[in-house]
Computed example of a mutant assay.
Amino acid sequence: MPIELRQLRYAVATADAKSFARAAAMLNVKQITLSRRVQQLEDRLNIKMFERSTRGAELTEHGQVCVELARRIITDVDNLKTIARNVSYGLQGRITVGFCTSLMSGNLKLAISDYLTKFPDVQFDGEEAGPDELRHGLHLGTIDLAVCPIGIEEEGLASRPAWAERILVALPVDHELLARDRIYWQDLRREVFVVQAGGLGPSFGNLIAARLTEQSKSPAIIRQNTSLESVISIVAAKRFITIATEASQGVNWPDIEFREIFDANGPTRLDYAFYWRDGNANPALKQFFSMIGERYPS
């Protein structure tokens, strides 16, 4: 007799509830039915999974191993069902959007949320990568749209302005610069910066170098092959600082404070653009731009 998924579910529920009665109530089945199914599973596996008593049911040593395996099997099957069910998600098309900025908050998060709400039957795939990888994906056709800082204009790619986000410096909460009303780029010239090796890291590194290189003396920039979240988190150790966009303020960062960076023209901003491959006739891409046109008119 083959092992049934239902038997595995009953065994896991019994292990969690430590009682056949409570497990049966939780699953809305008769206790005798659940107990019989678990017994059949034990017989099929030729092991005793539970010690039964008037106080309930406790896993045996063999039972603990089997229940953990059963959890994995149930999870895998449930995931498979979800994927199969979502085949219909995408009947109205598919779009792959690449980006190198944070989705913690900000314009990109709102734009994607709007699109998912407005076009629920379009399969939306996101791909996070650096600008070079995104440009390559556009040419290969693996990405329909890239959202990244301006600067990847080249033959075969079309573009349109997107939005601008404020550039912020992330400092430990006791940093002396936080006592100032405004922080200017020149105030940061003696600091050591840490940036991502990928994502927005190269753009940030270029920005820092452009603002702080003077008389052939370059700013101290350390590049780390980690996530943006890890880069920001390390600022709390008080050895480095970093810069980020306002989207990074979407979560609480203990022991870190974000402040705008000013120059003679005001707060520093990073300009973004949409890029796509010339001739891309994907209807889902057209829908995306229709929505973007409403939210961010040219």
Rank of each mutant, 00 (worst) to 15 (best):
L138D: 06
H139V: 13
H139D: 02
L140K: 13
L140I: 05
L140E: 10
G141I: 09
I143P: 01
I143W: 01
I143F: 11
I143M: 10
D144A: 11
D144T: 07
L145A: 11
L145G: 05
L145T: 06
A146L: 10
V147T: 10
V147E: 07
V147I: 15
C148I: 15
C148E: 10
C148L: 15
C148Q: 12
P149V: 08
P149I: 05
P149R: 10
P149C: 10
P149Q: 12
P149S: 14
P149H: 13
I150P: 02
I150S: 10
G151L: 12
G151W: 11
G151V: 14
G151E: 14
E153K: 15
E153R: 15
E154M: 13
E154Q: 15
E155F: 14
E155P: 05
E155K: 15
E155Q: 15
L157H: 13
L157M: 12
A158N: 12
A158D: 12
A158V: 08
S159F: 14
S159Y: 13
R160Y: 08
R160W: 08
P161E: 11
P161K: 13
A162F: 06
W163Q: 03
A164C: 07
A164I: 03
E165N: 11
E165A: 08
R166Q: 09
I167H: 06
I167K: 02
I167A: 05
V169C: 08
A170P: 04
A170L: 08
A170R: 03
L171N: 06
L171Q: 07
L171W: 03
P172A: 12
P172R: 11
P172V: 03
P172W: 06
V173W: 02
V173C: 13
D174S: 06
D174W: 01
D174C: 05
H175W: 04
E176S: 14
E176M: 02
E176A: 15
E176L: 08
L177S: 11
L177V: 04
L178D: 00
L178W: 03
A179V: 05
A179S: 15
R180E: 04
R180S: 09
D181S: 14
D181E: 13
D181L: 00
D181P: 00
D181H: 08
D181K: 12
D181R: 11
R182I: 01
I183F: 02
I183W: 01
Y184G: 05
Y184S: 09
Y184H: 11
Y184P: 03
Q186I: 05
D187E: 08
L188S: 06
L188Q: 04
L188G: 05
R189N: 04
R190G: 09
R190V: 07
R190Q: 12
R190A: 14
R190H: 14
E191K: 00
V192F: 07
V192S: 15
V192Y: 08
V192R: 13
V192M: 09
V192K: 12
V192T: 15
V192N: 11
F193E: 04
F193C: 01
V194T: 03
V194S: 02
V194D: 04
V194P: 02
V195F: 04
V195Y: 03
V195A: 03
Q196W: 03
Q196F: 00
Q196T: 09
Q196C: 10
G198T: 08
G198W: 00
G198Q: 01
G199S: 12
G199K: 04
G199D: 01
G199W: 02
G201H: 01
G201D: 07
G201N: 12
G201L: 05
